[in-house]
Structures are given as structure tokens and as C-alpha cells.
Simulated scan of single mutants.
Amino acid sequence: MATMKSVKTGAKNEIDVVDVERPTPGPRDALVRIRACGICGTDTFFLHLGGTPVGADGSIRSLPLGHEPAGEIVEVGAEVSELKVGDRVVVNPQGVPCGIIGCGGAHGAMSEYLLIEEAQVGRNLAVFPDHVPFDVAALNEPMAVARHCVNRSEAGTGDKVVVFGAGPIGLGATIWLKLRGVEHVVVVDIIPERLRTALAVGADAVVNSAEENVTERLTELHGQAANALGQPRAGTDIYIDAAGASAVFQAAVDSAKWGAKMVMVAVQKKSDAIDLGGMLRSELTLIASQGYPTEIFEVTAELAEHYERFAQLISHRVPFADVEQAFSLAMTPGAAEKVVVTF
């Protein structure tokens, strides 16, 4: 029996690297040799739990990790006509019948090989050009999340936008906003290194909210407007929350002009410190953004075209032999921005 290495949740805040049987594709399946896989906040969430809850009693089971893969086809079933051995591919984790890859499904992409059942280009796989490094291609899934957020915002060329949170999703949203021609994009964070990256990928300005008053800076950058009561507010049209902190939400409420929009893409931490009543004073429209209903492969061609720009989002490239170090980096606040494991 051929085996492979695979990563799954272990004890709380730990991973297990295990030997499992290497999958054998059926007639409609494809086998992908993983060459790079990103680590996401969802992965670290499962690690904090020690797995995923199952059943009414809330018991925890271990699960295979990894849902941001890029790799190459090494075997295809007899009935697969759109793919060939050697194709470089990215994967839709939600497009397979055995459950979401790396998020409770039977398979995880933080493995040497990944079985794609019912393999179909455009549904669960997309081919990308040879000139794109595998580590950058592995950003396809999170950049689809960022793209959906921008799509939900309906930002146009004349809009003035602020993005809170210069992690991978916030920076990805910044890139997509600028690629669609949005006039002015500000990025807000408290970590100077992240703000430098924001400028490098195209942000027009940055604000360190630990040192500066966000509302005052946005007014300087986007001009002065008013809320529904005529009170002075920043001229920002769209707020994107890629941070998930109550202080961010409140900063948007405090700054919003009449008719502004706020797109919430970050997972929100529960808090009683948010004045929802303040939204009335601006008629602030709150828009939630979850996942990528259509965007998972819509982004692939542009990601390939602008791969050098997206490459700047990766702070650490760690070989699979050191995968425990990679997860340690990802779980340590402030230690890394985007960690990609290479194979």
C-alpha cells in the first residue's frame, strides 16, 4: 500500500503529521500532487478547538487540514477528458462530493496528494499558467474571498474606500479595488509592516489606528461630508471590515456619512461595545460577505496576470518538512502575515 504524509488536528493547538493511504483515483477523478498550501485562520480555529464539533453532545473529532492548495495533476481517471498529467491546478474546496476540503470533509489539502472526486474544470479545478509560482497560485482561494467582498461592495471608479485590517483578505481586497479602478483606497491597521505592504500592493494611503485618529485622517484624505443629522463626517463612501474587532465596527459607525456602506468580511468577535443606534444617524448600509459563491475561479486569470503583486502578501514560505513550524508561526499573533507551506 502506497502512503503519504498528511496533516490533521491533534491535541488543542497542535497538529499531527500522519501516514495515510495515498488515494487512487476512480474513472471520473483526478489525483493532484500538492506543491503549495496556505494556512488560513480557519485552520487555526480548528486547532484551537482540537478538531471540529460533531454530534449533539459537542464532542470533537480530528479532521484533515488545508483548503488553499495548488499543485499538479499526476493521474486522471479514464473518463476525465479536460485534464492531463502535468496540468498545474488550483482547487475549489467546496466543489467535491465528500465535504469541504480541509473544513470537515474527508480530505485535507495539507497533504502530499489530494484526491479530487468527480473532477471537472470550472467546478472543482482550474488550470493556471506555468509561469505562476505554486505558492502564489495557492492564494487563489483567499483571494476569491477578498474578491467576493469587493463585489458585494459594488465599489465604482469614483468611490473612496477604506479597508480595516491589512491581513491577506484586507490586502487582497485592496488589490482588487485598485485593479477595478477605484479612485482612492485607504488601509487601516496597527502593525507598521502590514501598512508598508499595503502601500506596496497599491493602497493610496495608510492609517496606523494605534497612533492616529481614524475619523480625522479619513476626513483629511476623503474630504468632509455629513451624516443624516448634518453632523460632520468623513467623505468615505465604503468601509470594508477585514479585521473583525468591535473597535473597527465602531470606528466605521462614528465616521460614516449619510448613505455610506460597510462590508463585513471578517468573522466578528462578540461584543457589547458597538453602538448600533449610531447607524441610524448615517443610514449606514451593512453588507455581509461570506466565502465565494461565484468567484473561486473568476479570480484565477487575474491572479496569474498580476502574480508578482499578489506574491507580496506571502510573508513566510515554509517547506512541508517544517510544517509544525509553519503552523506555530500562523498561530502566534503578529509573527506572520500569510504562511504558505511548500512541497
Score class of each variant (00 low, 15 high):
residue 126 A to Q: 03
residue 124 N to H: 12
residue 136 V to T: 14
residue 101 I to H: 04
residue 119 A to G: 04
residue 117 E to C: 13
residue 111 S to T: 04
residue 88 R to I: 04
residue 109 A to G: 14
residue 94 Q to F: 11
residue 142 P to G: 11
residue 107 H to M: 12
residue 115 L to W: 01
residue 117 E to F: 05
residue 121 V to K: 12
residue 142 P to E: 04
residue 132 V to G: 07
residue 90 V to K: 09
residue 131 H to C: 01
residue 107 H to A: 13
residue 139 L to F: 03
residue 91 V to E: 00
residue 125 L to I: 13
residue 91 V to N: 03
residue 135 D to Q: 13
residue 93 P to Y: 06
residue 129 P to Y: 04
residue 95 G to D: 03
residue 133 P to M: 01
residue 89 V to Y: 08
residue 145 V to G: 09
residue 114 L to A: 10
residue 89 V to D: 08
residue 129 P to T: 02
residue 127 V to R: 14
residue 125 L to V: 12
residue 97 P to F: 02
residue 142 P to I: 03
residue 108 G to L: 02
residue 88 R to H: 15
residue 121 V to A: 10
residue 141 E to M: 01
residue 93 P to V: 06
residue 116 I to C: 12
residue 128 F to W: 09
residue 127 V to C: 03
residue 118 E to Y: 13
residue 106 A to W: 01
residue 91 V to M: 02
residue 120 Q to D: 07
residue 140 N to G: 13
residue 112 E to N: 10
residue 119 A to W: 00
residue 150 V to G: 01
residue 97 P to Q: 09
residue 101 I to G: 04
residue 87 D to G: 07
residue 109 A to V: 05
residue 139 L to Y: 05
residue 92 N to F: 14
residue 87 D to C: 12
residue 124 N to G: 03
residue 94 Q to T: 13
residue 109 A to H: 07
residue 132 V to H: 12
residue 88 R to M: 09
residue 141 E to G: 10
residue 115 L to K: 07
residue 137 A to Y: 00
residue 115 L to E: 03
residue 131 H to S: 10
residue 149 C to D: 09
residue 120 Q to S: 14
residue 111 S to I: 05
residue 138 A to K: 01
residue 119 A to Y: 02
residue 98 C to S: 15
residue 116 I to N: 12
residue 106 A to I: 12
